[in-house]
Simulated scan of single mutants.
Amino acid sequence: MSEFSHINQRGEASMVDVSNKAATVREARAEGYVRMSADTLQKILAGEHHKGDVFSVARIAGIQAAKQTSQLIPLCHPLMLSKVAVDFEAQPEHNRVRITSLAKLTGQTGVEMEALTAVSVAALTLFDMCKAVDPAMVLEGIRVLEKQGGKTGHWQADSTG
C-alpha cells in the first residue's frame, strides 16, 4: 500500500508539514465549462441578462473563492496568493462557457486546489445567476490543466481532457 501524505501513522487525517520544503514560484491553471441553452448564452453575450454582467460577478466570486480555499477544503494550507485570474470564453458552437483560472504564489506548497476552487465557484455563480431562466444548465469538465514549481516541476494535462 502506498503512503498517503494526509494520513498520520495512526491512520488519522493530518495536515502535511511543508515547513522543510523550499519556497518556489508555483502556478496552476484549471478549466471548467457551463453548458446552457443558446438563448441564455446569447442573453449573457448581448448584455441582456436581467441580472446584469454575470461574468464580472462570477469572476469576482472565483477570485474570492480561491483566497478562501483553506476554509473550504479540509487539510489545505492557507496560502498567500500573489495572483488569481478567472477568465471566460463563450463557445456558442457548443452552447457553453469555458472558465479558466490561474493561481500563483511563491511558497512551499502547490496551488492546484486554489485554481480548481476558482473555476468551480465561478461556474456555480454563473449557474446561480442564470438558473431562473435556464435551470437545466450543466457544470462539467472541471480539471487542472497545468501546474509548475516545486519538487515535481512542470506537469500538463493531455489535450484530450
Rank of each mutant, 00 (worst) to 15 (best):
E3C: 09
I60W: 01
R59L: 02
V121E: 00
P74C: 07
D158W: 05
Y33N: 02
S101C: 07
V16D: 00
L145T: 07
S159A: 15
L145P: 06
Q148K: 15
S101I: 01
Q91F: 07
V25H: 13
V18C: 13
T109M: 10
M80N: 15
A23S: 15
H94K: 15
T106V: 06
A58S: 10
A118K: 12
A38C: 10
V54K: 02
R59S: 02
V97Q: 02
I7Y: 03
K83P: 03
Q71I: 00
A85I: 01
A85W: 01
K147T: 03
I73V: 12
T106P: 00
L139D: 00
Q42R: 15
V34A: 07
P78N: 11
G11F: 01
N95A: 02
M113Y: 05
D128K: 10
T40Y: 02
A46P: 02
Q68P: 05
V18L: 07
Q71E: 14
K67P: 01
F4G: 07
F88P: 05
Q68D: 15
K43H: 05
T117Y: 05
H49G: 03
G150W: 10
N20G: 15
M113P: 05
K151H: 13
A46N: 14
T117V: 13
S120R: 02
E12F: 10
K147W: 12
E89D: 12
T109K: 07
M113R: 08
G11V: 03
A46R: 10
Q42G: 08
K21H: 15
A115Q: 08
D53S: 09
N8M: 08
A38K: 13
G62W: 00
T106S: 10
N20A: 15
L105P: 02
A38D: 14
L116T: 06
E12M: 08
G153V: 05
Q64T: 13
S159R: 14
A122Y: 03
S159I: 14
K131V: 09
M80T: 13
R96M: 12
L72G: 10
D128H: 06
G47R: 14
A132W: 09
G149Q: 01
E48C: 11
D87I: 00
Q42H: 12
E3R: 15
K83L: 13
F55I: 06
R29Q: 11
L72H: 06
E3T: 07
K131N: 09
A115W: 06
R96T: 04
P135N: 13
I99M: 02
R29W: 12
I60T: 11
K104G: 05
G62S: 02
S70Q: 06
A157D: 09
K43S: 12
G52E: 11
A28W: 04
D53F: 07
M137W: 07
V97H: 00
A103H: 01
Q64K: 09
A58C: 06
D87S: 13
L116C: 07
E89R: 14
I60L: 14
S120K: 04
V111D: 05
T160S: 15
L105Q: 03
E3K: 14
V133C: 14
V34T: 05
C130F: 03
A66V: 07
F88L: 00
D53I: 06
A13G: 12
S120N: 09
T40A: 06
H154T: 14
L75Y: 09
Q42Y: 05
P135L: 08
T40H: 03
R26K: 08
R29M: 11
I44Y: 09
S5R: 12
G11Y: 02
V144R: 07
